[in-house]
């Protein structure tokens, strides 16, 4: 058994499809930092120093293997001139769509990442975290995929109408979003992020049929991930992946976030040696888990996907709800440290 390795070394070993000392695990916590600092979610995300402090405290408390510089999905819309509505118990929602009709697509202005005060808060958080922790653990940054971002830019139904009925404007928006996404991903890597999580729920067969994905999300994903020019994980945020497994394996990402709606053993068998898996604890159910349930679920996931490496235990959505208690998170952590050591006892 290998010992005394850093979280970063543990993660990299697993991503190389080998077994490190134990299964790495990511608690993808964003809003819980506000609880740590006894602040509202809005106040917490108003200053990079809050998020740096929150992330440091969270990892100290839960002993997982990453830092997560994700603020909230709507921050990209704020950078584009939109607004979000904060609540006290969940991620902020985008208010009015910035694209109200398809003519607005041609009027979208170029966003300079470094001049955006909203995005700069994330970059500053990343720089400060990197300076503090060095190479101890990976820092995971986040981008919304060009293909999924329009759900927030124009509302879901407006976007579906665009996709099916207005191919020219759809392509125009994808070109704009791809440029933004590449710039945004690169800026985070330049600031110290170890890897970028490319959230693309719209590409899941839960959302669109495979034949549509092949012509759209797949091509856009390949091009954008290649453009980011750094380590990327693709995450379909609870959406299923198996019907498009071959394409996801070739999209250019090293890691794939997988859904609780698919069996982890089947996923591991399908993706083994091609792409590492991140998942798939049920983040919604976690709200009502007790210590025993957490331990059982962790053990089950580790047995199914842990052997051989290529696996990071995490939730299935990419963000743990604010309602999940510290007790459950500690129970998850304890279970990984108890049952996650290699070789996995079957």
């Amino acid at each position: 058994m290998k010992t005394n390795i850093t979280s970063l070394q543990r993660v990299l070993t697993s991503l190389g499809h080998s077994e490190p000392d134990r299964v790495p695990f990511f608690l993808l916590l964003s809003m819980h930092g506000a609880k740590e600092l006894n602040m509202s979610i809005k106040e917490y995300f108003s200053l990079p120093d809050n998020v740096v402090e929150g992330q440091l405290r969270l990892r100290e408390k839960f002993k997982d293997d990453c830092y997560y510089t994700f603020f909230y999905a709507g921050i990209e819309i704020e950078a584009m001139g939109g607004k979000v509505i904060f609540t006290n118990d969940g991620p902020p929602n985008v208010s009015t769509p910035i694209i109200k009709n398809i003519d607005d697509i041609a009027k979208l202005k170029h966003i300079s990442i470094k001049e955006s005060p909203h995005l700069n808060k994330v970059l500053e958080t990343t720089r400060k975290l990197k300076k503090t922790i060095g190479d101890d653990a990976p820092i995971i940054g986040v981008v919304m995929s060009p293909f999924s971002l329009p759900i927030m830019q124009m509302g879901f139904s407006g976007y579906l109408d665009l996709l099916y009925d207005h191919p020219k404007e759809f392509n125009q928006l994808m070109t704009y979003n791809e440029k933004f996404c590449i710039d945004w991903g690169r800026a985070q890597i330049e600031s110290g992020a170890t890897a970028i999580c490319y959230f693309d729920p719209f590409s899941s067969p839960t959302m669109i049929p495979k034949e549509v994905f092949l012509k759209t999300g797949f091509e856009i994903g390949k091009s954008t991930i290649s453009g980011i020019a750094g380590p990327v994980a693709i995450h379909l945020a609870s959406g299923i992946t198996l019907p498009i497994a071959d394409e996801l394996s070739q999209i250019g990402a090293a890691v794939l976030g997988v859904s609780v709606n698919e069996d982890l053993a089947e996923l591991k068998s399908k993706y083994k040696g091609k792409i590492s898996l991140l998942g798939n604890l049920n983040a919604v159910e976690m709200r009502r888990w007790d210590k025993e349930t957490a331990e059982r679920e962790v053990q089950k996931a580790i047995k199914k996907a842990g052997p051989g490496g290529g696996f990071i235990l995490s939730d299935n959505h990419g963000e743990i709800p604010y309602q999940v208690s510290d007790e459950v998170l500690i129970a998850i952590s304890d279970a990984v440290h108890k049952y996650g050591h290699y070789p996995i006892e079957m």
């Binding site: 879901f156 099916y164 067969p205 839960t206 669109i208 049929p209 549509v212």
Partner: peptide
């Protein structure tokens, strides 16, 4: 069946 197909 995907959500987009149900919507359309």
């Amino acid at each position: 069946v995907a959500l987009s197909q149900v919507y359309m």
